[in-house]
Structures are given as C-alpha cells and as structure tokens.
C-alpha cells in the first residue's frame, strides 16, 4: 500500500498577492510530487522588524512559526513580501534550516523592478518558485549542489537565480525522491 505523500503547508504572511502562494504550491506539487495545502494567512511579522536596518529578521519569524503546531502538514513554507535578513548577511531571498520543518521565502527582492507588482511579473513568480523549491529541499536535508544547472546550486544574486533552470540534476532528483517517500 502506498504511504501517504508528504504534505506541505503554504502560508502567506502579511500582505501577499494571492497568485504567489498558488504558483508556489503548484510548483511544489508538480516538481516534487508532494501534496500542498494553502493555509490561512498570518499577520505581517512586525515583531521581526529591525528598526535600524528596516528589514525583517528571519530568526523571530522562524521561532514564531516553529511554535505553531500545524498538525495537518509535514513541512511549512511561509511566503512574505518584506525584505528579509539574517544578521551576518545584507539580505536573503529565502531561508531554511537543514532538516528543519519551516522555510521562508520573500518575494521582495525577486521583482525585476522594485515598483512592479508581482502580478505583472512572470519572471518574479518563476524566481519565487525556484527559491521555494530550493529552500524546501533543504528541509529534506539536501545541501547545495556544485552543478550550476541544478536548482540546489547556490544563487546569491538575481542573475545567478535566472541562470539556473527550473529543474534538479539527476543526483538531487534521486535524493529528493527518496527523502520525500
């Protein structure tokens, strides 16, 4: 008997265009063959705002999400439209702890032009899907891949992200298939 597929909860946090969580959930289902559930949205994480940097610290948001049980899903991916950072870095597109339960991604820096709305930009949505798949795979213990044509290759800039195709190399594909069984 086939064991139930892993279930991923997608949570909009703060003011997020409706289309973004739907696109991300669809990519997770399509590329990783996982069940996805759109969970109810959460309020803007004002508690994580660093007033000096005018950015949102990933740490407190993680703590907040990890304190919630989310019993209906195995892993949770939160989507935000604010500028995220971890203290040693200027910014991050997304963040996940290796083998953890919660991942975050921000669409804030993924737009081609900061003034664009996400609805206008197919490119930004594709970038968001790439970051979401990459961070989600970290939750299944995948590490960065040396293959520049694999979604698990590290991308530190938008141009890097755009150069990576929306696919995994055969080793990472095999690994994620095994890990999500």
């Amino acid at each position: 008997m086939r064991k139930d597929r892993q279930r991923i909860g997608v949570i909009p946090i703060g003011d997020i265009p409706d289309i973004a969580p739907k696109v991300i959930a669809a990519h997770i289902s399509g590329y990783l063959d996982l069940q996805t559930t759109l969970l109810g949205s959460m309020k803007n994480p004002s508690y994580a705002l660093d007033r000096q940097r005018l950015q949102y610290n990933v740490g407190p948001i993680f703590q907040h999400l990890e304190s919630r049980l989310f019993t209906s899903v195995d892993k949770v991916i939160g989507i935000l439209d604010v500028d995220l950072f971890v203290p040693v870095f200027t910014h991050v597109f997304g963040e996940a702890r290796q083998g953890g339960r919660v991942a975050l991604i921000s669409i804030f820096r993924l737009r081609e032009n900061p003034m664009d709305t996400i609805n206008d930009s197919a490119v930004a949505l594709e970038r968001a899907a790439k970051v979401a798949l990459h961070e989600l795979c970290h939750l299944y213990d995948l590490t960065h891949c040396e293959n520049r044509q694999c979604l698990m290759h590290f991308s530190g800039s938008l141009s890097d992200l755009d150069q990576i195709p929306l696919s995994f190399c055969r080793y990472c594909s095999q690994y994620i298939r095994e890990a999500t069984k």
């Binding site: 870095f89 200027t90 590290f154 530190g156």
Partner: peptide, 11 residues
Amino acid sequence: LKPFKPKYLSL
C-alpha cells in the same frame, strides 16, 4: 565586512 551579501561569502 559584516553584514555581507550571501554572494560574497559564496565567492
């Protein structure tokens, strides 16, 4: 120099 771009760390 802290904070640095993730890209710099990778480089």
